Simulated scan of single mutants.
Amino acid sequence: MNIKHLQVFSAVYETGSVTRAAETMHLSQPAISKSLAALEAEIGYSLFRREGTGLQPTPEANLLIEDISEFLHGFEQLTASFKRAGRGDRGLVRIAATPGPSLGFLPGLVAEFMRQNPRTNVSLKIRNSASIRELVATGNADIGIADTGLQSPRYDSQPHRMVCLCAVHRSHPAAALDVIQPEDLAGTNWITLGQEHETFHQLASAHQQAGVQFNSTLTVDSSIQALLMVELGAGAAVLDPLSIRLFTTRNKRDNRDVVLKPFQPTIYESIDVHSVNARPMSAAARSMLLYILKALDA
């Protein structure tokens, strides 16, 4: 059954005239009459009878109009859904990220993306880097943000290198400096992400070159933990800008006790943004990926 024939039937039923139906649908009168005749021939009975200058629906037409109107409304919604899906504003986007980006960087970004794409569903999971790479490789996540690691043909990767900031308690003398150097924190305990993390080795090298002892006394699993420990006066830390975003947003509201300053020599932290290639990405996932990459480059 031709959808156009049903649309013509509905227009004629609502207007009571081939002429007005043609005007409504921007078609010629012969096209309306031909379509209506084709529908009647297909179903085997008449839908309208002529009375004066207009058309009156038959009892059969009166029985059909409600179902046909409901069907056409559903068809219009489906057509609109196809268009929204093509624009990337409908669908499911699955993101997996390490704790820092998950808590500091992504919440605001995802919230803004969903405001712009209100019919898109987003799943955000916190995982370690190895799990993130496996989720993306197997197609169980569309996008992953992880510490820099092994590249693989099982997913696409885009590296990003970030300049870290130094976090100290506001009571520390170094909090008043414009730039903090290793000698400014002599005798201060350092809170780190462990010896396997790239920032640890850069810090150790910076202290060695400055001739200052590197006191790494507290190891934590995430930059968010490190920030909380700095706030409690447990030491200093160098942290990536993605994790710091949570703190800087809350700091404006809560007047917290952590001060962030540039550190010299510069300490870098690298991340990889992974995307699935085991299957085609949805339009929504592609839009989210571009949104993330643009924010990282800002």
Rank of each mutant, 00 (worst) to 15 (best):
I3K: 14
I3E: 15
A11W: 04
V12K: 07
S17K: 13
V18S: 14
E23V: 11
L27Y: 07
S28D: 11
P30H: 11
P30R: 03
A31K: 05
S33G: 08
L36D: 05
L36R: 11
A38C: 12
E42Q: 14
Y45W: 04
F48S: 12
G54P: 04
P57H: 09
I65Y: 05
L72T: 08
G74R: 14
E76L: 10
L78P: 00
S81H: 13
K83M: 05
R84C: 02
G86D: 05
D89K: 03
L92D: 00
R94C: 03
A97K: 05
G100P: 08
G100F: 00
L106N: 09
P107F: 08
G108M: 10
L109T: 07
E112R: 14
Q116S: 15
T120G: 00
R127L: 15
L135M: 07
A137S: 09
T138K: 10
I143K: 02
G144H: 01
R154Y: 09
L165P: 00
H169P: 09
R170C: 09
A174N: 12
P182M: 00
D184K: 03
G187C: 06
I191F: 01
T192Q: 06
E198V: 05
S205I: 10
A206C: 09
G211S: 04
N215M: 12
L218G: 05
D221C: 09
S222K: 12
I224M: 12
Q225N: 11
Q225H: 15
A226M: 11
L228F: 04
A237H: 14
V238E: 01
D240R: 03
I244D: 07
F247V: 02
T249Q: 10
N251V: 02
D257C: 13
K261G: 02
T266P: 01
Y268W: 14
S275G: 08
S282P: 09
